[in-house]
């Protein structure tokens, strides 16, 4: 049987000092005669003591804020200027179609990355009055002309692409006859992480009508998905993944896109 007072949370409130004077006196009297509540109070004290030892971590590892600040300024740069919240349609369509044909690939990537950022951020935020993720995204065209790719952005998407290629290379060179289990978990986790980003890039790219790049990213997504969902490096799934990479000529296509200025 659980004591009713305990069930109602009174003991916690007592401990937290959230009871009125009268309730407090009553709880104290109750504690004197109820072992269960005394034990609960004791448990809470132990928990609180352990929590007090929880480390205070107030910065990224090593106190290095540089990456954090770079990402933040990239995200902020992709935002519409505060105060001006332009209406949706006008900026959107006109902006996209006017710009796309003129994009050099490096700038294009920066653009895509910015959109990805805003997609991510747009999804994450409960948008403040009237903001919509897609509006925010398209406004980013206006916020930063595509001729000026942010170096931080380019290097981020470049990293993503390089890491994806490494995973693919690792997968294609694995021996299907004797697949080793050691690195599989790492590879699978990495694939799962990359998958998320790839999907966002792909969406942004599609959004801007870049079908060639979107195709490459879609295939990459498929490989990463299969990898991330494989239980282990068994021969069958590994062969399946390798076939997929070969059939889609994925590595070559990635290199071509990449050499184009990623």
């Amino acid at each position: 049987m659980t004591c009713g007072l305990l069930e109602r949370g009174t003991i916690e409130l007592y401990w937290y000092g959230e009871l009125s004077q009268g309730e407090r006196d009553e709880a104290r009297r109750h504690l004197d005669r109820c072992l269960e509540c005394r034990q609960a109070l004791h448990d809470i004290e132990i928990i609180a003591a352990a929590l007090a030892e929880r480390p205070e971590v107030a910065s990224p590892p090593g106190g290095d804020w540089s990456r954090f600040m770079a990402e933040l300024s990239a995200a902020v740069a992709a935002e519409p200027r505060p105060k001006r919240t332009p209406p949706a349609e006008s900026v959107t369509r006109a902006g996209r179609h006017r710009l796309v044909p003129y994009l050099a690939s490096a700038a294009l990537l920066a653009l895509v990355t910015m959109s990805v950022f805003t997609l991510v951020r747009g999804r994450s935020a409960t948008p403040p009055d009237g903001f919509r993720a897609d509006v925010v995204m398209d406004v980013s065209f206006e916020a930063r002309p595509p001729s000026l790719p942010d170096p931080a952005l380019v290097s981020l998407s470049d990293q993503h692409f390089q890491r994806s290629k490494l995973v693919l290379l690792g997968l294609t060179t694995r021996d299907t006859a004797a697949p080793a289990a050691e690195d599989w978990e790492y590879e699978r986790d990495l694939a799962a992480t990359l998958l998320q980003d790839t999907r966002l890039y792909r969406r942004a790219v599609e959004e801007h009508g870049m079908t060639g790049l979107a195709d490459v990213l879609r295939d990459l997504e498929m490989v990463l998905l299969q990898t991330s969902m494989s239980e282990g490096p068994d021969r069958e799934s590994l062969e399946g993944i390798q076939r997929l990479i070969r059939r889609r000529d994925l590595l070559t296509r990635m290199s071509v896109v990449h050499a184009g200025g990623f």
Partner: peptide, 14 residues
């Protein structure tokens, strides 16, 4: 933390 500061940025004027 990124989210927080982006939200701050978005609502500075409010």
């Amino acid at each position: 933390a990124q989210d927080v500061f982006l939200k701050v940025f978005r609502s500075l004027d409010r």
